[in-house]
């Protein structure tokens, strides 16, 4: 039985359903979505995320940061994932723990894109806030000059700046051509 069949079998079992529910204690999962992504679904996920953040009555800046990072993460999924019939699904989660918000995404990408993406993320993670600002300004200037529609990592830089922490990521090979790209941005809730 492969992993996927096992997961499906488990979800059909009441004990496992209860376990899944119990593994997500109150207030720790703001939103979790796994499945197909398209612009309509992205909008629904964002709208639900916003509603749930509102219900946590977060201070304005914290909510805005979470929402902004969520927008960029969801658009990264839409723009950069390489979905096919075998691997159609992506995952998106906003959670909170120990005074931090965690915004995570996972999507399939072609294995030959790993190196370039990893280089970009490693570069971002070596920079301090001032270095990130410089990189951001430079990327914006270039995009203005070239009028390109591609974002040349602008979204990732913007997430890193809003997060103020190192970006988390991992690539897991699914088969020789495809990998699953896990990404996470976190930031501390502002103490009021």
């Amino acid at each position: 039985m492969n992993l996927r069949d096992m997961a499906l079998k488990n979800l059909c079992d009441f004990d496992e359903l209860f376990n899944l529910h119990s593994s997500m204690p109150d207030n720790q999962v703001i939103i979790a979505y796994e499945g197909e992504f398209n612009p309509q679904i992205t909008q629904s996920v964002l709208s639900l995320a916003e509603r749930n953040l509102d219900s946590k009555m977060e201070e304005g800046q914290t909510k805005r940061r979470a929402y902004n990072i969520a927008i960029e993460c969801l658009q990264n999924i839409s723009t950069h994932s390489d979905r096919d019939e075998k691997n159609p699904n992506c995952i998106f989660v906003i959670g909170q723990r120990d005074g931090h918000y965690f915004i995570s995404s996972g999507n399939t990408i072609k294995a030959d894109k790993i190196e370039k993406l990893k280089r970009k993320l490693d570069q971002i993670n070596t920079l301090d806030p001032e270095g990130l600002k410089q990189l951001h300004m430079q990327a914006i200037k270039e995009s203005l000059k070239n009028q390109t529609t591609s974002n040349s990592g602008l979204g990732l830089i913007s997430i890193a700046r809003k997060s103020g922490k190192k970006l988390g990521f991992q690539f897991t090979l699914i088969d020789p051509e495809n990998a699953f790209f896990c990404f996470q941005a976190s930031f501390p809730k502002k103490s009021v």
């Binding site: 929402y67 902004n68 927008i71 203005l144 009028q147 602008l154």
Partner: peptide
């Protein structure tokens, strides 16, 4: 604006430009 994404920021800059 309360929120905007990176692709919007490029549009606003092009407009101001």
């Amino acid at each position: 604006l309360e929120y905007f994404n990176t692709s919007t920021s490029k549009m606003i800059l092009s407009l101001l430009n």
